[in-house]
């Protein structure tokens, strides 16, 4: 395989992986941006979306609709969790919110285990999604799922971008993220904006969950943990709280994971994760707020 084709294929691999990470990271950043809260339950919203799509699909509904169903139910779950678990403790210490989100994680995961058993479930994908593309005599390949992931990431990001810049609600969300007290003072319904933010974030997570499941071929109640971890890393690299940052961070992380395996000698492959995190630490030493965030002054 010529070096050019090899690099091209690895770039494709990195972009596919990065899109998935970016989708999950965006939801995390959305919630942090508005509420200054690290939502540990985000990974489980992915799981909810994936299982919802699985159940809807098992009832005979075509994949496109079960995908939308997964997104919708993910969003709905986010709204319910916000109302039931997070709103009562809003304004409390950061630690309280953190622990609450951890509790939600456990509850959701165990609910999944109760309903679906914790064994991995086969996640069937339709024929049209199960194909792969070949170029240059089989040297460049990628799957239809990869294409779908990148396309849907692009579409959902464009929609999100339009929403936060062109609609009143979106602008309100950004206002609340910048300064919640001021937003309240100018008469914005902050409660509603927070609900919308959660719905959006969890909808993103639901989408990511279905795509992750389509890629992996299996779903299980503990599936949200690894993506959550990667999303954290991605969001932090890009600047926690910034949507563009989460996007950038996701692609960077995907690229890093692929390139370490692709371009370093095989003896280093076992240390892939160690290398990724070492780079992360080194990076944070120079830019602690991530790529797209600068330090802010805080008035005491």
């Amino acid at each position: 395989m010529s070096p050019g084709l090899y690099i091209a294929q690895q770039i494709i691999n990195g972009v596919s992986l990065g899109s998935l990470y970016a989708l999950v990271a965006i939801g995390l950043s959305l919630v942090f941006g508005i509420l200054r809260m690290t939502n540990f339950a985000h990974g489980d919203m992915m799981m909810v979306g994936a299982f919802a799509a699985l159940t809807i699909g098992a009832a005979g509904v075509p994949f496109e609709w079960s995908l939308l169903g997964g997104i919708a139910i993910g969003a709905l779950t986010g709204v319910i969790v916000e109302r039931v678990a997070y709103r009562p403790v809003r304004g409390a210490a950061d630690v309280t919110l953190l622990l609450t989100s951890l509790a939600v994680t456990y509850i959701l995961e165990n609910l999944g285990i109760l309903l679906f058993t914790s064994s991995p479930h086969d996640f069937p994908i339709p024929e049209w999604l199960d194909s792969s593309y070949e170029f240059s005599d089989g040297q460049i390949t990628f799957t239809q799922v990869n294409v779908l992931t990148v396309v849907l990431t692009g579409i959902s990001l464009s929609l999100l971008g339009w929403f936060v810049t062109r609609t009143d609600m979106g602008l309100g969300m950004r206002a609340a993220a910048e300064d919640m007290q001021a937003a309240n003072l100018v008469g914005l319904d902050v409660n509603k904006l927070i609900v919308i933010a959660f719905a959006l974030a969890s909808g993103f997570a639901g989408l990511a969950g279905v795509l992750w499941a389509a890629q992996a071929g299996v779903v299980e109640p503990s599936m949200g943990f690894t993506p959550l971890l990667k999303a954290f890393v991605a969001a932090i690299i890009g600047g926690f709280g910034s949507i563009a940052g989460a996007l950038l961070g996701g692609y960077l992380l995907g690229a890093l994971e692929v390139f370490i395996v692709a371009f370093l000698p095989s003896e280093l492959s076992p240390y892939r994760d160690a290398l990724v995190f070492s780079l992360l630490i080194a990076f944070l030493l120079f830019r602690p707020n991530g790529l797209l965030r600068t330090s802010r002054e805080v008035k005491l």
């Binding site: 395989m1 090899y6 294929q9 690895q10 691999n13 596919s16 992986l17 040297q139 992750w212 890629q215 992996a216 690894t226 994971e257 692929v258 390139f259 395996v261 692709a262 095989s266 492959s269 076992p270 892939r272 994760d273």
Partner: peptide, 24 residues
């Protein structure tokens, strides 16, 4: 002729697979 690693929990092995395909 070539050895490579992944970690249990990875959901994407495309990097390793591409390396394999590039072997000659």
């Amino acid at each position: 002729v070539l050895r490579d690693d992944y970690k249990s929990g990875d959901r994407s092995f495309t990097a390793q697979i591409t390396k394999l395909k590039a072997m000659s």
